[in-house]
Each structure stands twice: as structure tokens, then as C-alpha cells.
């Protein structure tokens, strides 16, 4: 199979159109199951009471906020190394969803911190570095809009994204490297999770929902970007004329 065939925007546009609704449906189903497990099956917490239930959106969106930047960096490396248009378009399509995920993680964190720690916000390393991530997302979106030539914007944003990726390990390891108000990780690759099983299941299903949601939204957004950037191309007219996609 020739993967290069699908890396052309012309070939990817209809595929994305077919896949997006299925990912959206799967995301909705996962969110329903996750919320059911999180609010009905999972018990209350021994120290935080019911307030801990914010974890079912806070942790999945915080994970996504970091992961999306890494995926953007991956596409950026491909865009620079292979000079492929679709890679840059994927990175461009991911940025707004990454910004939303970061915003949700910060917002839910504030409304979790107030009843547990006693404050909405503190300038500790974890929270500050996550706030920097939000500004980095704004920065890459602004940089894109500041440069008129799309190909030059692709390159500038790719370099910016790769440089900005340095913030991701800082966010992730901040709770180990410095004294922070934020607690350490409950779930990691190196240690057994320090959560009751039903709580963990609820959180992981919600994390899966966040993944599927991100894929669905990004597929639709990459289609809008293709429409914008390939306007007037012969293939696009042909595609739009032959099928209602």
C-alpha cells in the first residue's frame, strides 16, 4: 500500500469526511459510559468527598492538552523533513482543539482546587507551566494568522511547535522536580495506579472519549483547512461536483 497516496490533501479530504462521524459517535458513546461509571458506579472519595468527580474531565483534558502538542510536533517534524502539505495542515488543525483542552484542564482544575486546596489558582510549577502551554497554543495560532504565505506559515509554525515541545516534559515532571501544591501523578507508566478500580476505569474511558473527540473534530477541521487552502484546485471542484461530501 502506498501511504503517500493518502498524504495528498485530495485523497485525504473524502476519507476524513467518511471517518469523522464515526469517531464523533464513538466519542459520544465513550463519554456516556465514562460519565455513568464516574457518577453512578464510582464511589465517593475518602478525603475529597464528591469534589473529586471533577477528575473525570480534568485529567483526560490535561493529558490531551499535552499529547496534542506532541502530535503537532510530530507532524511539524514530518512537514519540515518531507515538505508535505498535509502534515502541516494536520498540525494546524490540532492547535485550536489543543487550546480548548488546555483551557478546560485549567478551568476544571480551578474549580477542583477551590473546594480541596482552598484556592482557585496558585503560581505553582504545574499550573504555571500548563498556563504557558495555553499561551503557546495562542502563539502558534497567532503566528499562523500573522504570515500570509501558507507555505512560509507552515515552516514558521513547525519550528515554533518543535521548540515549544520543551514545555511538555516540564509540565509532566513539574510535580516531581519541584515542590508543588499540585499532587503527583495517580496514573503513570512506571507505577501501579493509586486509585480505586472503578474510579480508574471511569477516568480511562473518559480519556478514550477525549481522544476520539479530538480525532473527530480535527478531521472536520482539516477538511475546512483543505477547502481554504486548495480553493480553485481542479481536484477539489471534481470532488465537490461528483459527491455530496
Amino acid at each position: 500500500m502506498n501511504l503517500y497516496r493518502y498524504s495528498a490533501p485530495a485523497a485525504f479530504y473524502p476519507i476524513a469526511g467518511v471517518l469523522a462521524p464515526w469517531f464523533a459517535l464513538a466519542a459520544a458513546l465513550c463519554a456516556l459510559v465514562g460519565l455513568y461509571v464516574g457518577f453512578v458506579v464510582a464511589p465517593t472519595d475518602f478525603q475529597q468527598g464528591q469534589a473529586y468527580r471533577i477528575i473525570f474531565i480534568h485529567v483526560p483534558t490535561a493529558w490531551m492538552s499535552m499529547f496534542i502538542w506532541l502530535v503537532m510536533a510530530f507532524w511539524s517534524v514530518l512537514a519540515l523533513a518531507l515538505n508535505t502539505r498535509l502534515s502541516a495542515m494536520m498540525a494546524q488543525a490540532l492547535a485550536p482543539t489543543g487550546a480548548w483542552m488546555t483551557f478546560i484542564a485549567l478551568w476544571t482544575g480551578a474549580f477542583w482546587g477551590r473546594p480541596t486546596w482552598g484556592t482557585y489558582w496558585a503560581w505553582d510549577a504545574r499550573m504555571t507551566s500548563e498556563l504557558i502551554l495555553l499561551f503557546l497554543y495562542f502563539g502558534v495560532i497567532a503566528l499562523r494568522n500573522a504570515i500570509d504565505d501558507p507555505r512560509r506559515a507552515d515552516r514558521a509554525c513547525a519550528v515554533f511547535t518543535i521548540v515549544g515541545a520543551v514545555n511538555i516534559p516540564i509540565i509532566y515532571f513539574s510535580v516531581q522536580w519541584w515542590n508543588t501544591l499540585h499532587q503527583g501523578a495517580s496514573v503513570s507508566l512506571t507505577a501501579a495506579p493509586s486509585m480505586a478500580a472503578t474510579m480508574l476505569v471511569g477516568m480511562l474511558v473518559m480519556a478514550l472519549a477525549a481522544w476520539l473527540y479530538t480525532i473527530a473534530v480535527v478531521l472536520v477541521r482539516v477538511r475546512t483547512i483543505i477547502l481554504e487552502r486548495e480553493r480553485g484546485a481542479a481536484w477539489l471542484d471534481a470532488t465537490l461536483a461528483t459527491r455530496r461530501v
Partner: peptide, 29 residues
């Protein structure tokens, strides 16, 4: 357990954010 305001504000704003993003990207497309 008296944390309703915090829990539902967190979930409500999340739902709003998702609605804005989904509707926005659909309309633009």
C-alpha cells in the same frame, strides 16, 4: 455533598466549550 457548585460549574463550562468548538467547526466547514 455541598460541592455541587464546583462540580457542575466545571462540567457545565466543559460542555459549553465543546459545544462552541463543535458548532464553530461545523459552520465554518
Amino acid at each position: 455533598g455541598n460541592y455541587g457548585f464546583y462540580v457542575w460549574t466545571a462540567y457545565g463550562v466543559t460542555a459549553l466549550a465543546i459545544a462552541i468548538e463543535v458548532i464553530g467547526v461545523r459552520l465554518r466547514w
